[in-house]
Amino acid sequence: MNIKQYLDSTYLKTPDQAGISVEEDLTVVMSFIQEAIHEQFKLIMIRPNHVALAKKMINDAKSKLTIGTVISFPEGTNSLEEKLAEANQAIVDGVDDLDFVCNYQAFKNGTIDLVKKEILEGTKLGLEHHKIVKWIIEVAALSDDQIIQLSALIKNVVMDNFKESSFSSVFVKSSTGFFKTQDGLPNGATVHTIIMMLENASPLPVKAAGGVRTYDEAVEMIQLGVKRIGTSSAKAIANGMEANGAY
């Protein structure tokens, strides 16, 4: 197993969140991109404003590394128009994967038509431009029943509106890694939540993001059936060490 081809090396903190300057942040982002190129990970996951930089670095290195970014991150409450505009700009800048934060608050409030509409239109935009699309459902904010229902809703929208050949390009993703939980509860992927997602999103693939901290945990997720793993400690995990990042 080449575990590196499952790993989306991830850096999504803003300068404020990291407690550093904009210039220092740029240095950190560039180091993550360079590391991902060198380590031959599947993808580098960064904020939208860094996509063009990543594209240039990857092209200069003649690397096969792909680029992912997050849309409406981390709350997912932007309007559909705002989400599509942000995704469109990322496409122009050279992105390969679009990870939309699903409006899970609207889902929890019963505004199901809004959620269906954004899944339909966001997926359509990505697929029309030959991009991978992922829908982040934020499992730590949902009950088990809600995880099951939202995973199934995404699956049904995709299966009802797109060709079977597209299904492998639309993921259901567990977490942003930024949700604030109480009492130290996990804010990312767990075996329990991933099993529910796999059972209810299939045939769509699943990405486990947040909470995968060791090589053995990553292997366990892959053996369960996940196709991607998001982590800010991809190099540590690939080398058999425990993750030292928060995501």
Rank of each mutant, 00 (worst) to 15 (best):
K4L: 09
D8R: 01
S9T: 12
D16L: 14
A18M: 10
I20G: 10
F32T: 07
E35R: 14
H38P: 01
E39W: 06
F41W: 02
L43V: 11
P48H: 08
A52V: 09
L53A: 11
N59P: 03
D60A: 15
T69H: 09
T69R: 11
S72R: 04
N78H: 13
N78R: 11
S79Y: 06
E81W: 03
K83P: 09
A85R: 13
A87T: 08
D96T: 12
C102R: 01
I112M: 06
D113A: 10
L114M: 05
L125A: 08
L125K: 08
L127H: 05
H130M: 09
W135E: 07
I137K: 03
A140L: 08
S143D: 10
I148R: 14
F162N: 09
K163Q: 14
S166E: 15
S169Q: 14
V170H: 06
V172N: 03
S174T: 15
S174K: 00
S175E: 06
F178Q: 12
T181M: 07
T181D: 04
L185I: 09
L185K: 15
G188K: 00
G188M: 01
A189C: 07
E199R: 09
E199W: 01
L204E: 02
L204R: 04
K207G: 00
A208F: 00
T214P: 02
I222F: 00
I222V: 12
K227I: 01
K227D: 03
R228M: 00
G230I: 00
A234N: 01
K235H: 12
M241D: 14
E242A: 13
A246S: 14
